[in-house]
Design a protein around this nucleic acid. Structure first.
Lengths: 241, 241
DNA sequence: GTGCGTTTGTGACATTGGTCACACGGCCTT
DNA sequence: AAGGCCGTGTGACCAATGTCACAAACGCAC
């Protein structure tokens, strides 16, 4: 830690000393690789909502989320917007484009105050050729991206209704971050209904109405920003995916 | 060529002698790699509609299309079916699953009489670690898959109508395989309306109606299995993607 | 040609869900 | 307390499209 906090984030520019280091992808280099890695990266902190790159731009380099989170969105000429992925600490932003050199197909912005590492494209390409565990981690992340894309294609293409997609989203929250309580599974909801609608590809009003119908059927209860799923199986029954 | 034709396909089991070898991915190994590669692969011919693997199965090995074509589909409990990808000669089937060991998320079947190579998973994993150009080609193919998935997410999630998705599909046909003629761009249509509907995630009837509306507006004409796009820009105007 | 299976065309109808319009409530700042 | 902003709840309305039910056209085998 060299600097004071910025946007509430304590900056740390050497992976070896990183207090948030976890078991995902790019945190997992061995000490030698990590040292070389640190030498070619730039660290910076960003406030919530900072634009990292935009659809159509050419990739200048690779971002890695050290702390915080980001989201990728795509948008249509008609103003419609879809959130295609949420990126957590330890994951990369725009890896495929850095590898291929093709323009970004999505826009990336932080969704909370975050610290990111940045590596210039040419440095990263050279680096990835020199170290074995780097190419391995690249492949891992690429596979992970394919996997998550496949899930989204399934949800968008196969669901018969917005209710089905929403039920699917709620269940994924339960599985990823749900806490068992006596009356069901409690999850912290960090998205507004607007964001939820952009995640499942529907309108904000529809999300509001469907959530109401879930509440009416006593499937869920909502208090402040936490939601409790009482009858998981009723959500599962909705889903034919 | 060792064997007589099967399902109308002339079998060839050594890449070095392959008459269909092209410039995509796995055809591009250098001679040394190619030789080692031939030693661990099995070649076979399949009729149209042959099932190669199904959703939920564990990957036994990697398929590579030498000749012919295949498609990947996903389907819901409700009987709905979506074609997620068409796989042409030189491309692989199920690479991500072979790499990760996770169950297939899609079903693969040939969409014309085809010759495929098969490599057992453990052989492929060993092979991919030993030869440099193999890992390179794997990364290339993974990136290609992410790219195609991203396009599909955009088409499914951002389009406002079935007409928009269909227009998008027709334009992609023009770009990929269109032949300029005096009255417009001519493309050979190899899909039935049923398959088209499964590609763009709508019903067969809707495809029929939208095509009719395009014909009525003189945007396209259809004769037998070839279609001519007369007014490309009118299709483009439909698309807000 | 004849016949059969597949593919395509079309009408009628019900439902979903997008859009517009506006009210309400919470929270923050002044 | 007042005002404003943001997120949410809700009614009314309508266009898009899924579904069912046939009919017509096409392609292929005999």
């Amino acid at each position: 830690m060299r600097n004071g906090p910025r946007y509430g984030v304590q900056i740390c520019d050497r992976c070896g000393e990183c207090p948030w280091r976890n078991d995902s992808f790019f945190c997992q280099f061995d000490p030698v690789t990590l040292k070389a890695f640190d030498d070619i990266t730039f660290v910076d902190a960003y406030p919530e909502g900072a634009l990292l790159f935009a659809e159509g731009e050419l990739p200048r380099g690779l971002y890695i989320v050290c702390y915080g989170s980001a989201k990728l969105t795509i948008s249509s000429g008609g103003g419609k917007k879809l959130i295609t992925r949420r990126v957590a600490a330890g994951e990369t932003l725009g890896l495929t484009n850095v590898m291929s050199g093709k323009p970004y197909k999505a826009t990336a912005e932080t969704s909370s105050p975050s610290q990111l590492k940045f590596i210039k494209r040419e440095d990263f390409l050279r680096f990835s050729g020199e170290y074995r565990d780097v190419s391995f981690n690249i492949a891992r992340q690429l596979i992970e991206e394919c996997d998550s894309d496949a899930n989204q294609i399934r949800a968008l293409g196969l669901a018969n209704s917005a209710a089905e997609r929403l039920a699917y989203l709620l269940l994924s929250w339960c599985d990823e971050s749900g806490v068992a309580s006596k009356s069901g599974m409690r999850v912290y909801v960090s998205m507004t209904q607007e964001e939820i609608s952009q995640t499942i590809g529907t309108s904000r009003e529809t999300v509001s109405r469907i959530l109401k119908s879930f509440k009416d059927k006593k499937i869920i209860t909502v208090r402040r920003s936490s939601m409790t799923v009482h009858r998981r199986h009723e959500l599962e029954d909705l889903i034919l995916l």
